[in-house]
């Protein structure tokens, strides 16, 4: 890792599953301290893209660097400074909240204190509740806390607020704003235009495995000649956010 590298650099990524091209050509760059959103309809290639950036999948083409590190080759170094919240929470179902937090904290040299993490995602009252007894939203919040356990310098948040009620969603947004204010670089995958408009400096619009636009929220609106980001998305992709690509 070097001091002059961007937080995330993805160049011409491509990935197929059983002959189906999930990601055709995705390039994006997240500068240090920047928050970049990734939006797209279901099947647009968002999750595959972030999984390649996180090192969970190997791109067939293109290259990825996170803080200058190769996610596969420099795995051990990168994992110390990268926090990842996956789309679905996958945790030991019978462990309690504090046990899970303490387990994930133990992986890092300088973790955030357990109490601070639980306060951050408002799970202090559930600290003795086992993971399988948490609601979907609480499981999501715990997953986010674990992604932040190691004081990451870059976080990847995939469907950050899916499953959360409106109040919890706004509290989670405040958490991301706090991370941004601390200089943490954020890559946020979202289905909610309101979310990326509020949290992200720039937004990448994905459609059928390609980046069709990458600009500030205001820039996307201006480019599409619409009045809202929702309408801009429809104008840029020709589909609604919930629509499957052909």
């Amino acid at each position: 890792m070097t001091s002059t590298e961007p937080a995330i650099l993805a160049e011409h990524l491509a990935k197929s599953y059983r002959g189906r091209r999930a990601v055709v050509d995705v390039s994006l760059r997240v500068e240090l301290g920047e928050a970049v959103g990734v939006v797209g309809a279901n099947g647009a290639g968002k999750t595959t893209t972030v999984e390649m950036i996180a090192g969970l999948r190997v791109p067939e083409q293109g290259r990825v660097r996170v803080l200058g590190l190769d996610p596969r080759r420099d795995r051990a170094r990168l994992r110390q400074v990268l926090g990842v919240q996956l789309q679905q929470a996958h945790l030991h179902h019978a462990l309690r909240v504090t046990e899970l937090v303490d387990l994930y904290r133990s992986f890092y040299p300088d973790p955030r204190p357990t109490g601070e993490l639980l306060d951050l995602v408002e799970l202090t009252g559930q600290r003795r509740t086992s993971f399988d007894k948490l609601s979907g939203g609480q499981q999501q919040r715990l997953s986010i806390a674990l992604a932040l356990a190691g004081r990451p310098r870059v976080v990847i948040l995939d469907e950050l607020t899916t499953g959360l009620d409106p109040a919890a969603r706004r509290r989670m947004w405040a958490t991301v704003e706090r991370l941004s204010s601390e200089g943490v670089s954020v890559l946020l995958v979202s289905h909610t235009m309101e979310e990326v408009e509020r949290l992200c400096d720039r937004v990448a619009v994905l459609d059928a495995g390609r980046v069709v636009a990458l600009d500030t929220p205001a820039g996307l609106v201006a480019r599409a000649g619409t009045s809202t980001l929702d309408d801009a998305f429809v104008a840029l992709t020709g589909r609604q956010l919930t629509e499957e690509p052909a």
Binding site: M1, T2, S3, T4, L67, L69, D74, A76, R77, L78, Q80, V81, H92, L95, E99, L100, D102, L103, S106, F107, Y108, P109
Partner: peptide
């Protein structure tokens, strides 16, 4: 271009925590 992150695997304390879990 100075490396800023040392590769550091979780140590015995982490393994003990995992064993306990």
């Amino acid at each position: 271009m100075t490396p800023l992150v040392q590769a550091r695997r979780p140590g015995p304390r982490s393994l003990v925590t995992l064993i306990r879990c």
